[in-house]
Amino acid sequence: MFGDIGTYLSSPGNRDLVLQQLLEHIYLSLLPLVLGLLVAIPLGWTATRFRWLRGLLLGGANILYTIPSLALFVILPAIIGTGITSPVNVIVALTLYTATLLVRPVVDALEAVPQHVVAAAVAMGYRPLARFFAVELPLAVPVLAAGARVASVSNISLVSVGALVGIGGLGLLFTKGFEIDYLPPIIIGILLTLILALIVDLLIVLLRNMLTRWQRVGAHVGGGS
């Protein structure tokens, strides 16, 4: 078994293919993660500021999320006018998924910022936008990170589905392997997908820890007044 994998990888052509699909996979899954965050944050913020938008946005997000990924990959080219095998489809689709997945946590996180902290920020003389970046967003990081972890795993696995409609990524190794009825590329594809998901998750956790040092200090060590 492992010998077969070794044999498969000993060919420079195969190695290049694996590496290329890995990079493609990273690109196709992580770019939408970042884009989705960038979309979800302002949407969530707007939803907290305008009550009527809140229901609309959260409802819309729920509906979008229920559309199967394969269907979205197929429908999107018709809507946005791209070729069926264009990577743009995957990027747009996964950005949509990520944004819909994250918009509720963003709303929840922003609403969970204690009122007295917000009031203090207003009273100190922050304008709304500056206050958002200085106070509300940093305090939302733990919730955002939790959402991003779910979205990253979801994106990494969904990119593999893209191979079914001819888009690159590690999923291509599965389809190739099935075509020629040869196991090694399939196993390599699965392993790399898993490792990628784990590493990205680890990176998100590290980034979160860096940004939330304040959350992990022991509470209240000073007695008296």
Partner: peptide, 21 residues
């Protein structure tokens, strides 16, 4: 409002400190 507030100190009951700073 923002400029006015920067010239007026404000203290509240729960202190309202920014937990992340």
């Amino acid at each position: 409002p923002a400029l006015l507030r920067r010239g007026i100190g404000y203290v509240i009951q729960q202190a309202g400190l920014f937990p992340h700073r």
